[in-house]
Design a binder for these strands. Structure first.
Lengths: 213, 213
DNA sequence: CCCCCTATTTATAACTC
DNA sequence: TGAGTTATAAATAGGGG
């Protein structure tokens, strides 16, 4: 039982690596829990490995779903039908953006992490339902990228509301899978790169500008 | 230098708790790094404490920004101006929803975690700029909640594009702060609660439904 | 605040079943 | 393959500078 001093390098032996991962994951989760308990801080950890289909997450979803429940009241005002055009446009915009994104996914590791990150965020914060899939998370980056410029641009007094009762989770899932299934066109076109600053929110007026405390 | 066995409970002594946090955070970061290196897995950790204004994140943003850079090509197609109305509506919708959400924020710990989680996700995945603020993240949960029903509803062939060059990060920040500053109306109205299933995506057609592999 | 020191606890590499 | 065992490496509590 002579124990070697750990060499900080990728463990090439498959079974050793897996065993190492299992042990260290457990230890890390415990450390996470201890830190949170001892110091009363909020923390979160996500680990994604080929050994498990679902990512390992700390803490359990329970804590986060308390927060989630506070967001559930959003759809309470609705019943408006005249937004179909806007929604159609935006939906299509999302589709295009997601397709664009898909083409530039090259690094599988990074891609998986993308999915995992957003899958977890999504599961915790947005949807709490049976139909969450890790695949679906590819859509979220695009949403988070597109929404700031599509949505948060101006501010008028006109309030319009939505009918959210029409939603169909089944078709949503199909759509997401469609986007995911033909993957890796692998064109890394540098001309498509645009600096990040343009992608931030904009609000032209209607908001008191003297509040940047 | 007698060392007590750690009792797994909140450390009431302020300085001890902080010292403990500092040490354990460092250890946890190292463990995270080791696990990632040794086992070649993707992982992420976020710790939010009152001792630091910015949350502690592993890994550094660098790794994630490699992924982020792949999203930066999104604005490459643009120059369309006839979307002002849609954007105005949606912007206002967001404002309303954020206000609604703000009223139901009661638990400060959870609220802070909300901000932290989204702040980190946002910093890593969406914006890579100087003007990111943890305050701004209150807007993101609302976006992620609203977008699925506002946006991803139908699918037509009509593609419209946006002019993203007009954006003004300064005003965005002011708006976000405006939303944040008058906080805690504290009405926990149960009638505003709506089940989560209605909030999922919907795509009515245009997507091959035979692909739910 | 930060790093350092050291006794001690804790995590875990290598091994066995 | 996974769950125990044990000796050793690593982390860290308490204290000092």
């Amino acid at each position: 039982m002579i124990r070697k001093k750990v060499k900080l390098a990728y463990i090439t032996n498959d079974s050793s690596r897996k065993a190492n991962y299992k042990k260290r994951k457990k230890g890390l989760m415990r450390k996470m829990s201890e830190l949170s308990t001892l110091c009363g801080i909020s923390a979160c950890a996500i680990m994604y490995s080929p050994y498990e289909s679902q990512p390992e997450v700390w803490p359990s979803r329970i804590g986060f779903q308390q927060v989630l429940s506070k967001f559930k009241m959003i759809p309470e005002m609705e019943e408006r039908k005249n937004l179909v055009n806007q929604e159609s446009f935006l939906s299509q915009r999302i589709v295009k953006v997601v397709e664009q994104l898909r083409k530039d996914y090259k690094d599988k590791r990074e891609k998986e992490m993308t999915q995992v990150m957003f899958n977890n965020i999504y599961d915790k914060w947005v949807v709490h339902g049976e139909s969450s899939s890790s695949l679906s998370m590819v859509a979220l980056p695009s949403m988070m990228m597109v929404m700031p410029k599509v949505i948060l641009r101006t501010g008028t007094e006109d309030i319009m509301q939505l009918d959210v009762k029409k939603m169909d989770p089944m078709k949503r899932q199909q759509w997401i899978m469609e986007l995911m299934n033909n993957n890796n066109n692998n064109n890394n076109n540098p001309q498509t790169h645009v600096g990040g600053e343009e992608m931030m929110f904009q609000f032209d007026d209607n908001i008191n500008p003297n509040n940047g405390h």
